[in-house]
Design a protein around this nucleic acid. Structure first.
Lengths: 237, 237
DNA sequence: ACATAGAATGACTACTAGTCAGAATACGAG
DNA sequence: CTCGTATTCTGACTAGTAGTCATTCTATGT
C-alpha cells in the first residue's frame, strides 16, 4: 500500500505533464509560438500559470516539448518506412516518401520545426530539453544513414559516397522544397504553372540516379515499381 | 527658393528613414528580432520611439525593411555573377557561388531571411512592406531563371526541364545546406567528419550533371575551370 | 514678430513572461 | 478522527515591451 503511493504520484505527475502538453500543443497549433500566451495554455489545461511553471521551465520549453512529439511521430514513420522493405534503395525512397507524408499530414508539427533553426529561440531553452532534442535529432540521422550505408556496402551506391553525406544531400533537397511548398504552393502552382511535388520527385530522382552504381542501376526495376505505387497512391486521394 | 523646399524636406525625410534603418540593422544584427526592443533602436537612432512609428508601421516592418537591404545586396551579387560570363552554364555556377559568398559574407542578413518563412511573422507586416518584399523575391527568381532558360534553349540542359524548376531544385538544395551549415557546421565537422561545403558541391554537381545534355557535357571543360577557380579562391582565404 | 503646419516627443495603455508568498490539499501518525 | 507536515497549486505581483496620442517644439511664410 504505502509502497505504491510514490509510484502513483509519479504517474500522476507524468499525466499532468502530458495534459499540459496536450493543451500547449492545441494552442501552439492554433496560434503559433508568438501569439500563444502562457495564460492561454493554463486556461485550456484548467491550471494556474504558476503550476505550468512547476512542470515546464519556460514557454519555449513547452514549445520544444511539443515539437518533440512531432519528431517522435516522424521517427516512427521513418522506422516503418525502413521496415517495409529489405532493399536499401527502396528503404531510402520509402523514407523520402514518409517525410513527404509527414509534411502533408503533420503540417503543424512540420512548421514547428522552423523555430528550431533560429539562434534566438535557443536562448530560452533549458539544457535538459535541449539535450532531449539533440538526442532525437541524432536518432533520426542514424536511422536515415543506415540504409544508405547498407546500399553503399551492397555496391548499389557509388563507394566514394559517405552515408551521412548522402542523407544530408537528400534531406537538404527535400527540406528546401517542403519549405517552399509550405510557404507558397499556390503561388508557384497558379502563377508559374510549376508543380513543386513533381519537381521534388524529379530532383531527388536525378540526385539518386547520379549516385547509383551500374549494379544499382540494374536494380532500377524496383525503383520504377516504387514510383508507380507512389503515383498510384497519389491518384487515389 | 520656395520651390526647392518641399524637395529638400522629402530628401530629409528619406534620410531619416535610412538613419532609422541603419540603427535598426545594427541592433537587429546584434540581438535578433525578439531581443531587440523598439526603444533600443530609438536610442541608437537618437530619436524618440514615437518618431520611429511615424516612419515605420511596426517593429516587424523595420525588420523586413532591413532584410530588404540584404535581398538587394544578394540581388546585386547575382547580377554580377551573371554578368561575369556569357556561357549560361557558367552563369548558373556563378550564381551558386555568389549565393555561397552571400551566405559567408552576409551571414546576418542570411539569418534574417529565416523569419520570413514563419507564418506568424507575417501578421504584423504592413501590406506595403510585404509588396516590396514580394517584388524583390520575384526579381531574384527571374534573374536566376534566365540563364537556365538560355541553357535549355542552347541545348546544354535537357529540353524537358523547366527553367524555374531547375532554379528551384538548385536553390532548394543549396538552401537546405546553408541552413544546416549555419546551424551546426562545427557539429557536423567535428563529430561526424562531414565537410558540408564539399557535400554541397558534390550534390549540386550531381544535380547539374544529371541535367546536362550530351552537348552540355562537352562544355564541361568550362565547368572544370570554374571549379578550380573556386577552390583557388577558397585556399587564398 | 507672429501664425501655422508638420515633425518630434515621452508619458501612458494594454499586455505578457515569469515569480513567489501563501492557500489548499494529500498523507501519515497518534 | 485530528492534527502536523510535505507536497501541490494558486493568482496577485514584478518587470518589461509594443504601440498610441495629447502635447511640445520647430521651421517656414507673411
Amino acid at each position: 500500500m504505502k509502497m505504491g503511493i510514490p509510484e502513483r504520484k509519479e504517474r500522476e505527475k507524468e499525466a499532468r505533464r502530458e495534459e499540459i502538453l496536450n493543451a500547449a500543443q492545441k494552442v501552439f497549433f492554433e496560434k503559433g509560438l508568438t501569439a500563444t500566451t502562457v495564460d492561454d495554455i493554463a486556461q485550456l489545461a484548467e491550471l494556474s500559470k504558476g503550476t505550468l511553471y512547476l512542470y515546464y521551465h519556460s514557454k519555449e520549453d513547452l514549445y520544444l516539448a511539443t515539437a518533440g512529439r512531432g519528431m517522435d511521430i516522424m521517427y516512427g514513420m521513418f522506422e516503418r518506412a525502413v521496415a517495409a522493405s529489405d532493399d536499401p534503395i527502396t528503404q531510402i525512397f520509402n523514407i523520402g516518401d514518409a517525410y513527404y507524408q509527414f509534411f502533408r499530414e503533420q503540417r503543424d508539427f512540420f512548421r514547428m520545426f522552423y523555430y528550431f533553426e533560429s539562434p534566438l529561440f535557443h536562448a530560452q531553452i533549458s539544457k535538459d530539453m535541449m539535450d532531449q532534442c539533440t538526442l532525437r535529432d541524432r536518432k533520426v540521422w542514424d536511422l536515415v544513414a543506415s540504409p544508405v550505408r547498407r546500399a553503399i556496402e551492397a555496391g548499389l551506391l557509388k563507394p566514394e559516397l559517405d552515408p551521412l553525406e548522402v542523407g544530408i544531400m537528400l534531406w537538404s533537397n527535400a527540406n528546401g522544397f517542403f519549405r517552399l511548398l509550405d510557404r507558397n504552393e499556390q503561388y508557384w502552382k497558379e502563377k508559374m504553372g510549376v508543380d513543386l511535388l513533381g519537381t521534388l520527385r524529379k530532383s531527388s530522382g536525378l540526385l539518386l540516379e547520379a549516385m547509383l552504381t551500374e549494379e544499382g542501376r540494374r536494380n532500377r526495376a524496383n525503383l520504377q515499381l516504387y514510383r508507380e505505387s507512389v503515383v498510384h497512391k497519389e491518384n487515389q486521394q
